[in-house]
Design a protein around this nucleic acid. Structure first.
Lengths: 220, 220, 220, 220
DNA sequence: TATGAATGAGCATTCATTCAT
DNA sequence: TATGAATGAATGCTCATTCAT
């Protein structure tokens, strides 16, 4: 009752392998409304009435679908994190070398951000999920899993000599993911750059950031 | 009356040249309280009563010193951006080559983030400043000035051959600044890494990200 | 949702023809409470909490039924003006000569004042309705309509020779209506004079004020 | 400390005999500010800060001159009522017959209203003077004195046969004074009619209202 | 005289949430 | 499923008033 896919069983599932998807995720109307509202006004700046009226449903109807305001946030957070986790898994599976895997992963992460800015930016509102909310662990677990997948790529790249990272690998990973996360704050779909362009540029910059040597053959 | 330095005339001024400062900025008690509250709960999640009681003052006293809640946000945003702008100016002035200048700049930005996580994270709440608030322009102007300073460093580095950036320079700059901004979401002062360590590591990663060749002499 | 007749569809309608009615208008409980409060303390002197507690409802319930404090004032103003407009229409229709029509009209106006002092006195609070409030025009339009009806009676009385008004007819009308409006400031139901007595006395004085000759047959 | 004439001993005194005065009363700056504010927003709609800022003085300065907000209201009410009482006394003394005396009295009352709409309209705010305020009695006493003067004129006019009032004399007096009081709600100095014109027209209508016979020689 | 700074109490309004139907 | 109607608690903000200087 408080999961993302109330109305449509598999509404939020991303087909695995489809990691270059650039379309927004399909979400039930209430979640789509909440996503937009949270993006524009933040969790605390959004009222439950905002959401209901955007969605065109009554307040009790909203409560029928979601336990409470936090439940809506949970549903969105889970929709976002599971989508990106699936994407990253597929992107890594689709690469043969650490270099290609990292490039693919950064690309799909940035595509995730640009494809659905609203949903991606909801990730920031995790701070407002009560720390004793049981779904929080689940979310954090998925995010950690994604980070571990990437950390593994970095470590294997170091081992193979593809990457040259003098300091703390985990801190560099934070650097890369931070850069990607911030895309939601400046990217505008109506702007000059397409999602694919940004994604490729970010992948290239990330490769340089981990010291991937330049002579190596291309990653596309 | 709505500026940051109500109680102490020069409270928020950072001594120029002091760009390796790792101490939090001094702020009047009401702003210090607001800074902590906004960091923990966000702008909309913080009530004016939260701020007043943290500051140990009454509600009307708070309003005597600040026009309204947005005015408090403005004061904090301006304190933060002017501090970082001063730091970046000094850091660039203190370097002889684009390479050293970029390294210094990233270092001071990360030190700014780690020295006062609370203040630095308030930058994110800019979204909640009414778009017709006259102070918004001022803030954005200062931020743009800082970005221009860094873009100039990047361009000069490209011209001199120090940096190798295949794509859009401005987008790479966004990448770097994004990575730095996100420091506030994961850094904890009680953790293993000191501000100086993180700052240096981020500077090094940033140099790699802009393709600064490794044989060049060090930047420390 | 912001009209006078929330609870009972036709709550505020006055049966036309019933222009000698001396009973207060029926109003939903929240409006009845507001009417009394506004009468006693004025619009600005009345708090929304006063109204809610007089009505025995919670604050949010009050807001469920009325947009805001101004909306409550609007509902009362419209209830009053439409009642008096209907009364005046009926009173004039019920008279054969200008003399009888004016007498009837003044009588019903004074009866309106004495029948529901509280409601009638709310008319004074029109000044506190925001000048850009769309309902203001509607109210003023109805009031003007009533004044036009009376001005017409006066003009016809002049033409027929029933009335002798040397100066500006409109100014004399203001004189008459001013005298009637002020009834709400001194009349007390527990006093010596009945509504009917005051109404007749005011009608007679008004006839004299417009120079209606005394030999004509009576109007009662 | 709470009377009208704090700054200037005789500031609010009207020279007796000058009952055709059409200039606003001189008032100290704080009272002039309060008068305008009360006129525009009413007593409860006006804040003490409104008054101070209109007057260009600080809040504590305002409190130095007046005990509190009610004290300001008292000062204005007394300024108004004593002015009108003096005028009415002089106007009656200046007439030889009841007819002329009533005409003069109505004229001066209307001139009082039009000469200083703001001050005259403050009379309505008497309702908001605490019923246990000692100044209230004084005010009401003066107003009663004025009404008694007029009632006496009416009675003498009845005795002499000048006036023909079938019903309650006191009620007719209320009628006349009501009409005059309401002048403040519609009169605008920038309008077509001069104060003198309105005053004469109201005097004539009042004479008719009390049944003063038409063949008698003029009252001007 | 004058005022900068302070405050307890109150303001209109909205919040997330619930319940009877 | 769906909703009209309700509410306790909180929101941002202002009130009249005071006091130390």
């Amino acid at each position: 009752m408080s999961t993302a896919a109330t109305d449509e069983p598999d509404a939020v599932a991303t087909a695995s392998g489809d990691w270059r998807q650039v379309e927004p995720l399909y979400l039930p109307v209430t979640l789509a409304a909440a996503k937009d509202a949270f993006h524009e006004r933040g969790f605390h700046g959004t009222s439950i009435r905002d959401i209901a009226s955007r969605a065109g449903v009554s307040l009790p109807t909203l409560y029928y679908h979601h336990e409470n305001k936090q439940g809506i946030l949970v549903a969105l957070l889970e929709a976002g994190i599971s989508s990106i986790l699936n994407r990253v898994r597929a992107a890594i599976a689709d690469g043969d070398t650490p270099r290609q895997q990292l490039s693919n992963a950064i690309e799909t992460i940035v595509l995730h951000m640009t494809a659905d800015l609203q949903l991606a930016s909801v990730g920031r509102e995790l701070r407002y999920l009560d720390s004793d909310n049981p779904h929080r662990q689940h979310y954090v677990g998925m995010r950690t899993e994604m980070e571990d997948l990437l950390a593994d790529v970095l470590r294997r790249g170091m081992a193979s000599g593809d990457f040259q990272i003098p300091g703390d690998v985990r801190e560099v990973l934070r650097y890369l993911l931070g850069a990607c996360q911030e895309v939601t704050t400046w990217y505008r779909p109506e702007g000059a750059r397409s999602p694919a362009q940004v994604a490729e540029s970010y992948a290239a910059t990330s490769l340089r950031a981990v010291g991937a040597s330049f002579d190596t053959t291309d990653h596309t």
